[in-house]
Amino acid sequence: MTWLALIMAGICEVFGVILIKRVTTQRDLKSLLMLILSFGLSFTLLSIAMRVIPMGTAYAIWTGIGTVG
């Protein structure tokens, strides 16, 4: 379960980075709320995963998913 949370955190992080461009081009409330929700969910899932997975391992995988995405 924690590995799934970590993978989902990485996917939310990638989605949040994609939404940064949308916020800068569209400047509407929906885009901004989606951006905040995406990054908030990413950090929440990362913190859940780090309860079991060591911090260094979780952070390396989380940033690796973000880099690949």
Results as ranks from 00 to 15, higher is better:
Met1His: 13
Thr2Gly: 09
Trp3Asp: 04
Leu4Gly: 15
Ala5Asn: 06
Ala5Trp: 09
Leu6Cys: 04
Ile7Ala: 11
Met8Cys: 03
Met8His: 09
Met8Lys: 11
Gly10Thr: 00
Gly10Met: 02
Ile11Arg: 10
Ile11Leu: 02
Cys12Arg: 03
Cys12Ala: 10
Glu13His: 11
Glu13Ala: 12
Val14Asn: 13
Phe15Lys: 12
Phe15Trp: 10
Gly16Lys: 01
Ile20Gln: 08
Lys21Asp: 07
Lys21Ala: 13
Arg22Lys: 15
Arg22Gly: 10
Thr24Lys: 15
Thr25Lys: 14
Thr25Asn: 09
Thr25Ser: 11
Thr25Phe: 09
Thr25Pro: 05
Gln26Ser: 06
Gln26Pro: 02
Gln26Arg: 06
Gln26Trp: 10
Gln26Lys: 12
Gln26Glu: 05
Arg27Tyr: 08
Arg27Ile: 07
Asp28Met: 00
Asp28Thr: 01
Lys30Val: 08
Lys30Trp: 14
Lys30Leu: 10
Ser31Val: 14
Ser31Pro: 13
Ser31Lys: 14
Leu32Tyr: 11
Leu32Val: 12
Leu32Glu: 07
Leu33Asn: 10
Leu33Tyr: 15
Met34Ala: 09
Met34Trp: 15
Met34Pro: 08
Met34Thr: 10
Ile36Glu: 07
Ser38Val: 02
Phe39Gln: 13
Phe39Met: 06
Phe39Asn: 15
Ser42Phe: 04
Phe43Glu: 02
Thr44Gly: 11
Leu45Gly: 00
Leu45Lys: 00
Leu45Trp: 00
Ile48Leu: 10
Ala49Leu: 02
Ala49Val: 02
Met50Ser: 11
Met50Tyr: 01
Met50Gly: 07
Arg51His: 09
Ile53His: 08
Ile53Gly: 02
Pro54His: 06
Pro54Gln: 03
Met55Gly: 15
Gly56Ser: 05
Gly56Trp: 08
Ala58Leu: 01
Ala58Ser: 03
Tyr59Pro: 00
Tyr59Cys: 01
Ala60Ile: 07
Ile61Arg: 01
Ile61Tyr: 00
Ile61Glu: 00
Trp62Met: 07
Trp62Leu: 03
Trp62Gln: 03
Gly64Ile: 09
Gly64Asn: 09
Gly64Lys: 11
Val68Cys: 05
Gly69Glu: 06
Gly69Trp: 04
Gly69Lys: 02
